[in-house]
Design a protein around this nucleic acid. Structure first.
Length: 483
RNA sequence: GGCGCCUUGGUCAAGCGGUUAAGACUCCAGCCUCUCACGCUGGCUACAUGGGUUCGAAUCCCAUAGGCGUCACCA
């Protein structure tokens, strides 16, 4: 059995779409699950679309996602170069070989040429250049006429190829246009370069989007023309997005964050993103496991688990998975990863690990943190409504009755630690003879200025510090009495 | 429009001729609880439609519908 070699072949657009990331992931998992190689190849044959620095961006993104190429532009490998624009002589050689064997021809048609008869027309050219005499060709060449090299498709019959997900797919050759192999500028088209490179680089399995299904017969014909063995094809369905109005379409900008980078910036962990994306179109056999480390994905991956229907990207589920990753981290780890997403004052930054521990189970992405802790830095405006709570039998009067003596108890705390605070508040609560909830409600609301807080009274007191806590409670008291 | 692919709850998704049609997310209810969250219990919701084949079909076949893709000197 030949060695499994897969490749990820993005064009350098400076953007790593989630769908691309998933394709890369599957290719990587397939290779690694069978001890093979994963290749990164840059398909930069469209000069107009080239984005400066995009290659480095792709490499950095893959690295962040823990998808590490064995061969690539900056990873080396015996089939270098791995950037198509650096392989032009190779494509030229094979294109000419095809002309000689009668499977390709020089086409001198202008791009905008119109065809008037009722014959089937392919992209502004007809097939008359197929029949040019050698003399005509020589003349055109001598005149310096620009030309492209086109693949000479069989006019009859059909081409069948096997796709792991879809089985045999057959397309009539009459549906196939004479594909341009070499463009006017000498660059190869995708449809040509990928065949040459995949063969030369000994790629065994091609994983790419379904948008390539209909052009695969062209590739298969090329393999036949050259007498090469075609690789195994796998065409997973695209990742879809759901718009606000419920319509479903290929995941794009209108659906929000759609690139790996967008998601990182929103504060999702790379591991969580990779994990979630892996499950969008793949599921493990004989298991319901959902949380996977990269090593576990490699161990569990198999082509049989791939789905052939499109999957809708679900931010709710990503949020859940993200939360699962947070919960499995230690407070220290979480505090560390979240640190760059928050701005803290000196007081809070000295208690950051503790605060982070409180937040860990309450956020689904790191960018949720800052809004959740703002009340600790700046107290929200007074709102009397907050001091009325039916369930805990709290009213404004009752709040004043509780906060006033509580202030005394708080002022009496010398050593400001979570333990001493907890003990003092517990003792105070007991002394009032009231239910815990009844006592805590006005205190928490009075301290935080909001109904919902991460952590309870003890934690907030600790985080705020003695001086600040007392100041806030006094202010609250003033406001309540003024009503 | 031609050609191709796809179709199990709102979403992901098991299932490969015989099941009470898994599991997860979301949502709802309850428990826990000083709020929220976590955790725990439980619940709602699905085989696109119509024909076959078969003792028996979500599973096989054929239509129909809908969705998606493709028809570039982009990938």
């Amino acid at each position: 059995m030949t060695r499994v070699r897969t490749r990820f072949a993005p064009s350098p657009t400076g953007f790593m779409h989630i769908g691309n990331l998933r394709t890369a992931l599957y290719a990587y998992l397939l290779a690694k699950s069978s001890g093979g190689d994963f290749i990164l190849r840059i398909e930069d044959t469209d000069r107009a679309r080239y984005v400066e620095g995009a290659v480095e961006f792709i490499e950095k993104t893959l690295e962040a996602a823990h998808i590490i190429p064995d061969e690539g532009p900056h990873h080396g490998g015996k089939f270098a170069p791995y950037v198509q624009s650096e392989r032009m002589p190779i494509y030229k050689k094979y294109a000419e070989q095809l002309i000689e064997s009668g499977h390709a021809y020089r086409c001198f048609c202008q791009q905008s040429e119109e065809q008037s008869d009722g014959e089937k027309k392919f992209g502004g050219y007809d097939r008359h250049c197929r029949d040019l005499s050698q003399a005509e060709i020589e003349k055109n060449l001598a005149d310096g006429l620009p030309y492209v090299i086109r693949q000479k498709m069989p006019l009859a019959g059909e081409t069948t190829f096997f796709d792991v997900l879809h089985g045999n797919i057959t397309i009539a050759n009459s549906e196939l246009e004479d594909q341009v192999l070499l463009k006017r500028d000498g660059m190869p088209t995708y449809n040509f370069a990928n065949v040459i490179d995949d063969h030369l680089m000994e790629v065994s399995h091609i994983i790419r989007g379904t948008e390539f299904i209909t052009s695969t017969p062209k590739h298969v014909l090329l393999y036949q023309f050259f007498g090469w063995e075609p690789p195994t094809f796998i065409h997973p369905a695209p990742v879809m997005g759901k718009a606000a109005d419920g319509t479903i379409s290929k995941l794009s900008k209108r659906h929000g964050a759609t690139s790996f980078n967008d998601l990182i910036q929103a504060g999702y962990l790379p591991e969580a993103i990779t994990n979630y994306v892996a499950l969008l179109g793949w599921s493990p056999k004989n298991s319901n496991q959902e949380i996977f480390s990269m090593d576990e994905l490699i161990a569990a991956f198999s082509l049989e688990g791939l789905s052939k229907s499109p999957a809708v990207f679900d931010y709710d589920k990503l949020d859940w998975m993200s939360g699962e990753y947070f919960k499995r981290m230690s407070d220290e780890q979480f505090a560390d990863s979240a640190r760059s997403f928050v701005e803290l004052d000196d007081n809070l930054s000295s208690k950051w690990t503790f605060l982070a521990g409180l937040l860990k189970t309450r956020v689904s992405k790191l960018s949720d943190i800052q809004p959740a802790i703002r009340f600790l830095i700046e107290k929200p405006p007074f709102d009397a409504e907050l001091f009325v709570n039916k369930k805990n039998k709290i009213t404004v009067e009752k709040s004043i009755e509780i906060i006033t003596p509580a202030l005394g108890a708080i002022e009496a705390i010398d050593d400001w630690t979570l333990e001493t605070i907890g003990a003092a508040i517990a003792a105070f609560t007991t002394s009032t003879g009231l239910k815990v909830g009844t006592v805590m409600w006005p205190l928490r609301v009075g301290l935080s200025g909001q109904k919902v807080t991460p952590g309870g009274v003890n934690e907030i007191l600790y985080l705020l510090g003695k001086k600040n806590s007392i100041a806030r409670l006094n202010e609250t008291l003033d406001n309540l009495r003024a009503l």
